[in-house]
Write a protein that binds this DNA or RNA. Structure first.
Lengths: 199, 199
DNA sequence: TTATATTTCGACTTAACGGTCGAAATATAA
DNA sequence: TTATATTTCGACCGTTAAGTCGAAATATAA
């Protein structure tokens, strides 16, 4: 029998381990991080980690899953608001940017880690579906926006790739950009994604 | 005593090993690649690899060093030509893009691998100085260009980061962009890096 | 041909790491 | 208090992979 409180505490302990794991993953990368160190950092015995998570990889994936789920939840509001494609598109990017700047470490991990594990398996990986959803939403907004003449006339694929790179660049290029503000991003996006209606 | 021909053959063997190593690194990543497999792929005994390279990491770094050196050599021509900052800037990006599309594998490695080893040491790492040179050159061209009104008025730091991300995005986002041509890139850059003189 | 230098290599050593085990500690329930 | 369930853990195991060793093969020189 498991009480509500026990459940809660268990969840808390899991989160605590996940936090420790995140710092280690950031510092050492996926391969470089060891369960021994994660245990040390989160002040548990190694065996205890395996009481909460079945494997190192699961620890890794759970960080991604939870992070993407949280991010997606805040994006849903933006998406559901009935703005124009262009506005929604830009708002999504700005929302992500703001969150990422609050939690730079976590978001650097969320956006970079996935490519670090292309060599590994495919599994269920919930986070992948969120990532997919985000991408297809942006793509759709972009296409609708182009159709309505809200973006410069460019092949949407090309544009999308460019924006993707641009975005990653804005947020994660180097460690020296601690001083980018939300309004900077807004300005930059507005400048680069020229709105043909406002020459 | 070592003849010219022996020297040459030794160099050839090194290159051969490096080629094999590159394919393995691409396929398996830095950590995933094993010296046993590199040996297998390049048809040498493992011990032989250590006759040519002191460590796995040195194999890795030598690929980076040589790649960046070669890249830099072709960029020097572009840089030395007496074009305007804006033209030079765009030409550099286009040159890299063209080379990268000819040797996608190698260049994906050149541009991605560095971040994969941030967790590792700092060493001498020749390639880092090339990377640095490239970045500071681009930065300088951008600043000169902005001073001369050849780019939209934006903080150069911000702009530089955006361009960096944009560029990486154009060339390396996903594996599905096999169909981007040089002229696409040119068009895209010209569109995004709006030239205020040609409204 | 013989002596010497260069190149090759499979077997071995060593260390690290993911994961398990069984028992101890601690909390909960009766 | 006693019985039961949950949580914790250090020691251990098996595997994997980097790097070494000493000798064999091969090329070069005398």
């Amino acid at each position: 029998m498991v009480t509500k409180r026990q459940e809660k505490e268990r969840e808390l302990r899991k989160e605590h381990i996940l936090e420790g794991a995140l710092t280690v993953f950031e510092e050492k990368g996926l391969e470089g991080a060891t369960m021994d160190e994660i245990a040390r950092v989160s002040d548990f015995g190694k065996a205890t980690l395996y009481y909460y998570f079945p494997s190192k990889e699961d620890v890794f994936c759970e960080i991604l899953d939870r992070g993407w789920a949280t991010l997606w939840k805040s994006l849903e509001e933006v998406i559901d608001s009935d703005k124009s494609p262009r506005e929604s598109f830009i708002n999504i990017l700005i929302t992500i940017a703001r969150k990422a700047q609050k939690n730079r470490n976590e978001y650097e991990f969320l956006f970079n880690a996935p490519q670090a594990i292309t060599h590994i398996d495919d599994k269920d990986q919930v986070w992948k579906s969120y990532q997919q959803k985000l991408y297809s939403t942006l793509k759709e907004l972009l296409e609708d926006g182009i159709a309505q003449g809200q973006f410069p006339k460019l092949d949407s694929d090309l544009m999308f790739k460019a924006i993707g790179g641009l975005f990653v660049g804005i947020i994660f290029m180097g460690e020296k950009n601690k001083d980018i503000t939300g309004s900077d991003i807004e300005k930059l996006l507005n400048q680069l994604i020229t709105d043909p209606k406002q020459p």
